[in-house]
C-alpha cells in the first residue's frame, strides 16, 4: 500500500487518473451507456409488444414533426420558461433577504430545504387538497365573503405552473443565496460614497455579481421543468400534456420505445442548446475578477 501511494505521489498523470476513475466509471455505467442504448433504440424498429426489433429507421424522429407533438414541445418550453421567470421573481428577493438576515440566515436556509424531507408526490397531493373546489383556499375565500362561488383552481394551466414553481423554487434560491452571500459589503459602500443611488447600486454592483447564481439557478429550474410529468398529470388533470408525459406514455401503455427514445433525444438536444446559450451568455456577462 505504501509503495503504491509513493508511486502515485511521483506520477502526476497516474494520480489524476486514479482520482478520476470512480467518477468516470460511474458516469460511464449510469450515463454514457444508458444514453448510448437510448440512442440505439431511437433508430430501431418498434417491437409489437414493447422493446425494439433489429433494423434501422429514422421514422421515430420524422414522426416527432407531427404538429400535435410540436405543439406539445412548444407548450413544454413555454411552461418551463415561465416557471423559471417566476422562480427568479419570487426567489431573488428571498435569497437577498436571507443573505442579509444575519443570525437568522441558517434557520431560514433550513426552512428553504425543509420541503425536501417529504416526497414530491405527497407534496403534490397536498397541493391538490389546497386547490380543489372544497379545498382550503376556496373554503377560506368563501368564508371571508370574497367570492360566492368556488374558483376553478385545480386542473388548470395555472395549477401546473404553481406546482412547478413550488417544486423548483429552492433550486433557484440556493445558488442565488450562495452568490449574494459572498458579496463584499465594502463594494456597496464604495459605490455609495461615489454617489450611486440604491437603484444604481443594485443594478451596477449587486446584480452583476449575483449573475453566476442567477445563471446556475435558472438552469437548475429550467431543465427539470422541461422533463416534468408528475405535476402536469396530477395538477393539470392530464390536460396539460408536456413532453415528459409523452415520453412516459411511449414506454408504458403505447409500447413504442423507439418513439419514446427519439422524443427523449429531441428533449436532450434542446436542453444542450439552452445550456450552451446560457453558459456562453452568462460567461460573457460575468464581471472581471475583482
Amino acid at each position: 500500500m505504501r509503495r503504491v501511494t509513493r508511486w502515485l505521489a511521483r506520477h502526476d498523470r497516474a494520480r489524476a487518473w486514479t482520482l478520476l476513475a470512480p467518477g468516470t466509471l460511474w458516469l460511464l455505467a449510469f450515463f454514457v451507456l444508458p444514453v448510448a442504448i437510448m440512442g440505439a433504440y431511437s433508430v430501431m424498429e418498434r417491437g409489437l409488444y414493447g422493446g425494439v426489433e433489429p433494423g434501422f429507421t429514422l421514422e421515430p424522429y420524422a414522426r416527432f414533426f407531427d404538429p400535435l407533438y410540436v405543439r406539445i414541445l412548444a407548450r413544454t418550453l413555454w411552461l418551463a420558461a415561465l416557471t423559471t421567470l417566476l422562480c427568479v421573481v419570487i426567489g431573488y428577493p428571498v435569497a437577498y433577504a436571507i443573505a442579509g438576515a444575519g443570525r437568522w440566515k441558517h434557520a431560514l436556509l433550513f426552512l428553504v430545504v425543509l420541503p425536501f424531507w417529504t416526497s414530491f408526490l405527497v407534496r403534490t397531493y397536498a397541493i391538490m387538497f389546497l386547490l380543489r373546489d372544497t379545498g382550503l383556499v376556496n373554503s377560506a375565500l368563501l368564508a371571508l365573503g370574497v367570492i360566492d362561488e368556488p374558483l376553478t383552481l385545480l386542473y388548470t394551466p395555472g395549477a401546473v405552473l404553481a406546482g412547478l414553481v413550488y417544486g423548483y423554487l429552492p433550486f433557484m434560491i440556493l445558488p442565488l443565496y450562495a452568490s449574494l452571500e459572498k458579496l463584499d459589503p465594502a463594494l456597496l459602500e464604495a459605490a455609495e460614497s461615489l454617489g450611486a443611488r440604491p437603484a444604481a447600486r443594485f443594478l451596477r454592483v449587486t446584480l452583476p455579481l449575483s449573475l453566476p447564481g442567477l445563471v446556475a439557478g435558472s438552469l437548475l429550474v429550467f431543465i427539470p421543468s422541461l422533463g416534468a410529468f408528475l405535476t402536469p398529470d396530477l395538477l393539470g388533470g392530464a390536460r396539460q400534456v408536456m413532453i415528459g408525459n409523452l415520453i412516459q406514455q411511449q414506454f408504458g401503455a403505447a409500447r413504442d420505445w423507439p418513439f419514446g427514445a427519439a422524443a427523449s433525444f429531441v428533449l436532450m438536444a434542446l436542453v444542450l442548446a439552452v445550456v450552451y446559450v446560457f453558459l456562453r451568455r452568462g460567461a460573457s456577462a460575468l464581471p472581471e475578477e475583482v
Partner: peptide, 15 residues
C-alpha cells in the same frame, strides 16, 4: 399494431 394509432388519438384528446 393498433396501439400506435390509439396512442396518437389519446394524445390528441388530452391536448
Amino acid at each position: 399494431e393498433g396501439t400506435r394509432l390509439w396512442d396518437r388519438i389519446w394524445t390528441e384528446i388530452k391536448s
